[in-house]
Design a binder for these strands. Structure first.
Ligand SMILES: [Zn+2]
Ligand SMILES: [Zn+2]
Ligand SMILES: [Zn+2]
Ligand SMILES: [Zn+2]
Lengths: 149, 149
DNA sequence: CCCTTCATTGAAAATCATTTTCAATAGTGG
DNA sequence: CCACTATTGAAAATGATTTTCAATGAAGGG
């Protein structure tokens, strides 16, 4: 999602784009390929702006997730992770989580639209978003495959 | 999954089916339609077996999830939730999470197998499991629809 | 400008789910 | 019955997240 659209969303709800919020947003714009935890965002932010507080990071992440600027997700490592939402029109990607090295790969795909339509038709549930995680083994780990127990 | 198969899985790995573990398992067998949190399991267990400790509940849930007897999942309410795995052969269901009433509906479907095959072919990632959550509005909430802000 | 108001912030304390510690208990296999 | 080890319960510890609260700072009215 582009900065312009984000500003628009914030002002629609009368939120101010404070310097702290700008800094945190920039972290996400500069790390589009990562799935950052609050603590990771905090560490990145602190490098340039040591005065910023962890609570502000948490508050900003909440706010941006509320606005759908960020997607909040859970990869089972005990902390929430966030990434920039895609634009409204593009469909968002799925996550392939390696059970051996814990790496998170992304996978672009539209096949799920079909499934969504089918679910809406059959269940009457109106879908506005989805999260899909596939667990398995990445290419490297299939080869390296050290037994796990 | 049936009790017999569960016992088998436990003895394969030399875990004992202690009375505490039996009680916790029974909770899941008696509540197949629910997605229970550790605390909820603990409350249900305590009714009949007040001596059982919360730590034992957590330990047992971990153990059973490790054995794939339980599926551990996260619906964004800050705690992990668990449900009995389906049998090896049946495909497991998806979750429809209502953004208004927070209810979790289930939806049986096989369309995802296709998608899994496509992903494996295109990415080289070997998939062993998946978790799919759809967020939206259940039938009731579409009608009732009180504005949320 | 000055003042009031209200959103936002940082630091510290509090909360809450989960994990760990440790001594007590209880199967198992002689 | 006697080790030996897995398991348990209670309490303490941990770690992520939230709340509290006083201080800061932007915005608007006079
Ligand atoms: Zn891997
Ligand atoms: Zn992603
Ligand atoms: Zn609903
Ligand atoms: Zn379910």
């Amino acid at each position: 999602m582009r900065l312009e659209r984000i500003c628009q969303k914030m002002s629609e709800k009368d939120y101010r784009l404070t310097p702290q919020r700008q800094v945190i947003l920039k972290i996400f714009l500069d790390n589009m390929d990562r799935h950052l935890s609050a603590e990771e965002v905090y560490q990145l932010v602190k490098k340039e702006h040591p005065k910023i507080g962890l609570a502000t990071v948490y508050r900003t992440l909440d706010l941006l997730a509320e606005l759908d600027v960020l997607q909040k997700m859970n990869f089972g490592d005990g902390r929430s992770r966030y990434e920039l939402s895609s634009d409204e029109d593009t469909h968002h990607h799925h996550h392939l989580i390696c059970l051996r090295c814990q790496r998170v790969l992304e996978f672009e795909d539209d096949l799920l639209e079909e499934l969504e339509d089918s679910i809406e038709a059959r269940s009457g549930f109106k879908i506005v978003n989805h999260q899909v995680k596939f667990y398995g083994y990445c290419r490297d780990c299939q080869e390296a495959q050290t037994p796990r127990f």
